[in-house]
Computed example of a mutant assay.
Amino acid sequence: VFHAYGHQWACQVVFHPRKCAGFGFTDGEGCERFWSSIRHLIAGLRVSGYHRRLFILDRQMHSLDKESVWKLATWLRKRYQVAQRRLSDAQLVLDACGETEEELAAQWKAQVEAQMEKHPRQSQSAADKQIDKILLTVGTIDDLKEQIADDRKRLRKSRKLSTSEKNTLTASIEATRREIGSLQAKVDSMQNALGTEHCRRLESMRGSEYLSARVNARALRAKIRQALVAHKFERRKVERAYRHQLLEAKEHAQTKDLVHRRERGISAMVLKFNKLVERMVVLIKEGKKPRGRARFPRKLEAKKLFKLDIDDEIWQEDPGLGPQDEDDLPRYLSDLNVQRGMTALLEKNRCLEE
């Protein structure tokens, strides 16, 4: 199980044995225990013949099998007592966190879904693709408005319609209005991301180097934030596991590698992001930004990011790039009680399975 802590957090939330239903407290060390039990045969079997080696291994396995059956009751009692103790501890944490198990399960599910989302991709035509999406959505809105106009015309001729038909048309108009509102909010969000909320002719902005840099910078910034969230959970789990296994040997080389190897990738992304910011600043000064007030995006400092401070600029809105859900942090990230409760809930589930 310990080796799972070296994997990426997105992998752990789905495949880690302590987070998967049905694993209980299985640690995956069955083969290692068997190898440990027959290691005393190594010296003698090195000089044995082929058939003698097979015979001795076969006899040893039969002996181990009988011994394990003889000690089965003791083993089961020990496992049961450990599970009961851990279940009691987990229940105390659940009671103290003040959240229902249904809410904690929903938050855990939301975290898994968020971690499994695809990272926003960068490309030279990213801005053009965004413009195409906006234009397509605007076209859909226009079609829906025409549909509402047609339904209203039919309602004006209400003398020829039955009551059920009138109710159906009225419900259709209301549903279409809600859909238009949802699509319009999506258009506004995409235009804010592009910084083209004050522009009328989006078609003329195809191929804009500034818009391409802005979209790629936003995508890279979102990717950095996701990587930092994963890094936080990975570091906490690895450090806790190693403190338990290595008896406070915090300077162990493998520990340091597991904890810090993600930082190199994040630092590379920060460097790339800062280069995009520098390019955007140059383009703004050259007057290649769309209409509207010019605001320079902020650079990021890699050293500050790894402190995981909630007040760091990466978690705040960048005026040069627009909002990126900074005011809507999920509870599994912002609420410590929810985090503790989710951990305890997973522990309780594994105890019950055990």
Rank of each mutant, 00 (worst) to 15 (best):
H3M: 12
Y5D: 03
H7I: 06
W9Q: 03
F15A: 12
F23G: 02
G28C: 08
E29C: 04
I42N: 09
I42T: 13
A43F: 15
A43V: 15
H51I: 09
R53V: 08
R53A: 13
R53S: 14
L54K: 10
I56V: 15
I56A: 08
R59N: 11
S63Q: 04
D65W: 02
K66G: 12
K71A: 14
K78L: 11
Y80P: 05
A83W: 04
R85A: 13
R85Y: 06
L87Y: 07
V93K: 04
A96S: 11
T100V: 06
L104F: 10
Q107F: 11
D132P: 03
I141Y: 00
S158P: 01
S158F: 10
S162E: 07
S172M: 10
I173G: 07
S182L: 15
K186G: 07
M190G: 00
H198W: 09
H198L: 15
C199Y: 01
C199E: 12
R201H: 11
L211G: 05
R218M: 04
R218S: 02
L220H: 00
A222C: 14
A227D: 12
A227P: 03
H231P: 00
Y242D: 01
Q245R: 13
Q245G: 07
Q245N: 11
H252M: 08
K256D: 08
K256N: 13
L258Q: 05
R262W: 02
S267T: 15
A268E: 09
E278C: 07
M280Q: 05
V282Q: 14
R293H: 11
P297E: 01
K303W: 02
F306L: 07
K307H: 12
E313W: 02
Q316M: 12
E326K: 04
L329S: 09
A344D: 00
A344N: 00
L346F: 07
K348N: 01
R350T: 05
E354H: 10
